[in-house]
Design a protein around this nucleic acid. Structure first.
Lengths: 104, 104
DNA sequence: TTGACATGCAACCATTTGGTTGCCTATTAT
DNA sequence: ATAATAGGCAACCAAATGGTTGCATGTCAA
């Protein structure tokens, strides 16, 4: 779980996921196109995404194809975000109450 | 948005949010209790959470009270996680197809 | 078979991060 | 008034991060 959060903490990596979400199964070179980064930097980002299981790769000849794995993102939603969804209104209420108290 | 992801990338900070989720409005010292960290380290983490608007604070005498702001977490769910929810099944299908192709 | 192409590996670098220690300030309680 | 309590500030440090360059390897096409 920690690896997933860490992987998602970088805007470049999130944009790589966006690109794969737009078109799945891209090669490394395709994913590099238009990015202000060297291929090696992208490789490192993809390795981190792969480590976090957000991306799975397959070798096809000399190409490496990258596929999005949506499961960890889904789990963050289920196991983490939803926990804070419960009690959200209560928390907002307490916040509002404190803001009003401040103005007394 | 980037600040929120970055803030959530650290396990200590997520556990601070957990603690506030369990009991809202705690002081700095309360939040420090039982943590294997100096008070100053916790202060820094809370500053990052505050910067990302995940926590809002109020001064009450010499104490600083910390309140959870659930809005940014909710937004990550709405604006980010849900985007990948759409197309999740398609992505899983492609993944499965590639895994099977590999065994040919 | 040889050159071009796709990717991998490793060393290196600057900056950021997560933590520390030491000291200062402000508020409360005795 | 003064001591104890709650928190703030700043300098410092080691390790992690995000990036680079240079070179090596594996695969495809002419």
């Amino acid at each position: 779980m920690d690896e997933v959060f860490k992987a998602l903490a970088d805007a470049s990596r999130r944009s790589l996921l966006d690109r794969l979400h737009a078109r799945n199964g891209q090669t490394l070179n395709e994913l590099c196109e238009g990015l202000a980064m060297t291929r090696q930097a992208v490789t490192k980002h993809l390795a981190i995404l792969e480590e976090a299981n957000l991306v799975t790769t397959f070798k096809h000849g000399r190409e490496k194809l990258h596929y999005l794995n949506p499961v960890p993102i889904h789990q963050i939603g289920e196991r983490w975000i939803k926990k804070f969804e419960r009690g959200k209104l209560a928390a907002l209420g307490e916040l509002k109450r404190q803001l009003e108290k401040r103005d007394e």
